[in-house]
Computed example of a mutant assay.
Amino acid sequence: MDSRSNNFDCVRLLAALAVIYGHAFPLALLGSPTLLGNSIQAFAVKIFFSISGFLICKSWVSSAGLGNYIAKRALRIFPALIVLVLVTVLIVGPVLTSLSFSEYYSNLTVLYYLKNIMLYPVYNLVDLFSYNSYKGAVNGSLWSLPVEFFMYILIALLAIKRKRAVDASPSSVLFIATAIMVSLSLRLVHHTTPEIHPVVYGTDLISALDVAPYFLIGALYSYYSLERFFDMGVALFLVGFAVLFQPTSSVMQEAFLYVVAPYVILSFATTKTIYLHRVGRYGDFSYGIYLYGFLIQQVVNAVTKNSISPLQNALVSMPLAVLCACLSWHFIEKPALKYKTNLNFIFIRGKQHG
């Protein structure tokens, strides 16, 4: 989908900046501003997942096969992530640690932190940020990446592709799976949360359940071609309704959000709005901002010795995150994405000769 004819880049950029703003509060040990029962940063991540589900499902349906699809997703996720982890371990860690170089590099947590490259979330790195208000988390944003990548794989299993354009309607498997995921999320995240959260591959499954339905709902709109029902007038009405008539219980708030948020987000994202559709003309910086934001915020708090307010932290961190994201896009992400063309040639040719 051509980003110049829609607002996707704008929405993703605003969501990435909202994550930084929201994180500034817990990093100062303060409660985050909330929206419909969600912290600002949690709501922003749900925006990402709604958009991702919509676009990734389109990518899967139009892909040359599973190998081609997974390789493309890997090209988008891993190059920037690998550089981020190496920058954290090889530059940020040695500069800000109170240990000597030999003590730092001989610590097992340095090696263990590299597991983030394999989408295994590891938050602690030696004594880094041990004097910050929020200790023990070098980059808390990385928790969502394994969830995101798992959803990529899940979509390939659920969004069953038709062999011919004249085939019957799309499979109902995706719809059923979404209903089940929504039910599990409402039950285990918003009704009765388990005292001990199950963890798989370093990932809190309750946190994963909180965002996964939005990915699948976004995918539903794409898979069943429901975008023809997107309308900004209806979206604005839903926003006004949400402001005036917010449910009181956590379960009802989230159920209401399932209905309203993806529709409003995707209606606006698929629209071409004057000026806003040009936000991405210099590059898609949202992923880089998301990757570097939390780390930069912790660095800012370390340098200022926790002496600034959450708003000040956000205002200082945002331009620094944008700068890092700009460098990441132009020197890492964009060059890596050029290999997508080669992948299409390889897999399509392989299919023809198979």
Rank of each mutant, 00 (worst) to 15 (best):
L311W: 12
F48N: 01
E254Y: 05
G140F: 05
G31W: 02
A28N: 15
V126N: 15
V239Q: 02
S171F: 00
F54C: 06
F237E: 04
L236M: 13
R187K: 13
G218C: 03
L327N: 06
R187F: 11
L226I: 01
L119T: 10
N6C: 01
Q298P: 01
S222T: 01
I40A: 08
F268E: 04
G293Q: 12
M181Y: 02
Y120Q: 11
F150I: 04
A18I: 01
I70W: 14
R228S: 11
F25A: 02
N342R: 14
A28V: 09
I176G: 13
L111M: 11
I176E: 13
Y275Q: 00
L343Y: 13
F54A: 05
F230P: 00
P335H: 06
S50P: 09
Y201Q: 00
S328C: 15
L220M: 08
T193N: 04
V259W: 14
D9E: 03
A156P: 00
I117P: 08
S106G: 02
M181H: 07
Y21P: 00
V11A: 01
Y214D: 04
Y214F: 15
K46M: 14
L14M: 10
V110H: 03
I265E: 03
R349T: 13
L205F: 05
G65Q: 12
V239F: 00
S133G: 09
L244M: 09
P319M: 06
V200L: 15
S102V: 07
A71E: 10
V251L: 08
P198K: 14
S307C: 09
L188C: 03
Y292F: 15
S144H: 12
G31V: 01
F175I: 10
T97D: 12
Y258W: 11
D204F: 02
S250C: 04
A74L: 14
S50V: 02
K163T: 08
M252D: 12
V95F: 10
L142E: 09
G37Q: 09
I274H: 13
L55H: 03
M181W: 02
Y290V: 06
Y112L: 14
A24V: 07
S172R: 12
T304N: 12
S106H: 06
K334E: 12
V322Q: 05
I91L: 15
T192A: 08
M252V: 00
V89G: 00
V239R: 01
A80F: 06
S185H: 09
F49V: 13
S62D: 11
S307H: 14
S185Y: 10
A18N: 01
V239G: 01
F285G: 00
V92Y: 12
L311S: 10
V260S: 11
L114S: 05
I47V: 15
T97W: 02
P26A: 09
